[in-house]
């Protein structure tokens, strides 16, 4: 029980004013240290689930626990446990990477000295040291994705939620991000990752759940999923389980 990083039990949620349930009695468990991929077509509920897990959306029924702590309580200690890298750029474009890291580091509860150390470290990892004082508004998409990630991990969270962290970036930036995430995982950080990039998921994740219409349609290690469904790759498995029709 101790090594459960995320536990979702009987989660029920629908958006205000809508009768259709996005999730009904949804259950999921992620063990500490996993690199977990949440995959699914557009509108499957991946981003909604991320928002529920991170406390951005209030849910009607059920429970979401991070390392045994109920997220619904929204207390500071729970919030310190996780990091979040949203799909949208979540920083101040008028400020430089250093200024953003200083600010978000303080809001994450780090001391001035800790922030200083982490800024040097993260700018080096993300390859942004030479542009640390330039406004982010002038950056390319790849650079913005890297700083988006750096802010999410500044406080060394035990579990990191990544919502499509590599959307719109070139191969170099993508590989750099994947490589860093693996390093992070090696130091003990649990990763929960959503993406449309199935080859990227194959590279990164050691456990996968395919969700569609608010339900897990398949779950397990990549190898076991492919073997069970007699598929050679994740793309074939994805189409097999979710169909070929448009979802949005």
């Amino acid at each position: 029980m101790d090594n459960i990083a995320l536990s979702i039990e009987n989660l029920t949620f629908n958006y205000p004013g809508q009768t259709a349930k996005c999730f009904s009695d949804f259950n999921l468990k992620i063990t500490e240290g996993e690199r977990f991929g949440l995959l699914g077509p557009n509108g499957a509920g991946k981003t909604t689930l991320m928002n529920l897990i991170t406390g951005l959306l209030p849910f009607q029924k059920g429970s979401i626990k991070l390392f045994g702590n109920e997220i619904k309580n929204k207390n500071k200690s729970v919030k310190k446990l996780f990091g979040f890298v949203p799909q949208d750029f979540s920083f101040y474009q008028e400020l430089s990477p250093k200024e953003n890291l200083e600010f978000f580091g303080a809001w994450a509860g780090l001391s001035k000295n800790e922030i200083k150390e982490r800024i040097i470290e993260l700018l080096e990892i993300t390859g942004l040291t030479s542009v640390k004082n330039q406004p982010i508004a002038e950056f390319s998409g790849g650079m913005k994705r890297r700083i988006n990630l750096a802010i999410g991990v500044i406080h060394r969270p035990r579990i990191l939620f990544l919502d499509e962290p590599t959307v719109g970036v070139d191969v170099q930036s993508r590989l750099s991000i994947i490589s860093y995430l693996k390093e992070l995982n090696n130091t003990g950080t649990t990763l929960v990752y959503t993406s449309h990039q199935l080859n990227e998921a194959e590279l990164l994740c050691n456990n996968i759940a395919l969700i569609d219409e608010g339900k897990i349609v398949a779950g397990g290690t990549l190898e076991s999923l492919l073997a069970n469904h007699n598929e050679n790759g994740l793309e074939g498995l994805f189409l097999n389980l979710t169909g070929k029709t448009f979802r949005d």
Binding site: T54, G55, L56, S77, K79, K80, F84, D88, S90, F104
Partner: peptide, 13 residues
């Protein structure tokens, strides 16, 4: 309306 607000809401402040 910006993404930074989403991040602020997930931080312990």
């Amino acid at each position: 309306l910006s993404g930074s607000f989403v991040r602020l809401k997930t931080l312990p402040t």
